[in-house]
């Protein structure tokens, strides 16, 4: 499937288009969280059961993102802060931090990934069961950051697919939580189709 550019109305960046009038979910229908206008059209087409099932599955997936912290640097400290009580990501069902990739849904790559770490990252990503999502946290994982050098990976999308990018050095716990919320939105809208 070719990569599609996803336009999200909730972005803070104004260049992305919002929801045009008439494109939103229609009023009067039973709407579950994550339902889009496309699914509303499918309703009329008689594919009620499958679309509803997809919506339910996406809703459940979005609300139970068990993170795997791939913390190699200081960003992991902010991740700990997000999990603990002042920010408390447990409100979104992502509190069960799993250090085994076989039990995790969301891989939070927090920190500098040097070239030697690349195969390890790929291996751990491959060990995660489907559906799996990746969040690149911090400047280093996103783009290499200030390590503009030969031995640091300039963005982890060189080895694994990434669903959401959170810049910052490091991002604040709120900023990271915003990233997880955006990822949750994306999953619930059914825009990630893998596995």
């Amino acid at each position: 499937m070719p990569a599609q550019k996803i336009e999200h109305p909730d972005s803070i960046i104004p260049r992305k288009a919002g929801v045009a009038p008439g494109e939103g979910p229609e009023k009067g229908l039973i709407t579950l969280p994550g339902e889009t206008s496309r699914e509303a059209e499918d309703l009329a087409g008689g594919t009620y059961l499958t679309t509803k099932l997809d919506t339910m599955v996406n809703w459940a997936r979005g609300n139970s993102l068990w993170p795997l912290p791939f913390g190699t640097a200081c960003c992991a400290i902010e991740f700990m802060s997000m999990v603990s009580s002042h920010y408390d990501v447990a409100r979104f069902g992502a509190e069960v931090v799993r250090f085994s990739p076989r039990q995790a849904d969301l891989m939070i790559v927090a920190g500098t990934i040097v070239d030697k770490m690349g195969p390890v990252l790929k291996k751990i990503y491959d060990q995660m069961p489907e559906p799996k999502y990746v969040l690149a946290m911090g400047a280093c994982a996103t783009s290499g950051g200030f390590y503009r050098v030969y031995h640091v990976m300039q963005g982890i999308d060189e080895v694994i697919p990434v669903d959401i990018w959170v810049p910052g050095c490091p991002p604040t716990p709120d900023g990271l939580m915003y990233g997880i919320l955006k990822l949750k939105d994306k999953i619930e809208r059914g825009e990630i189709k893998r596995g």
Partner: peptide, 29 residues
């Protein structure tokens, strides 16, 4: 005082002149 910078696309994090000036004219998420 803005830290909500997460993005679905890496290239969206490259800001040009107009975007640097007008990115905050939308209500916060």
């Amino acid at each position: 005082k803005t830290y909500e910078l997460a993005s679905y696309d890496r290239n969206d994090l490259y800001f040009n002149m107009q975007e640097l000036e007008y990115w905050d004219e939308r209500p916060r998420y």
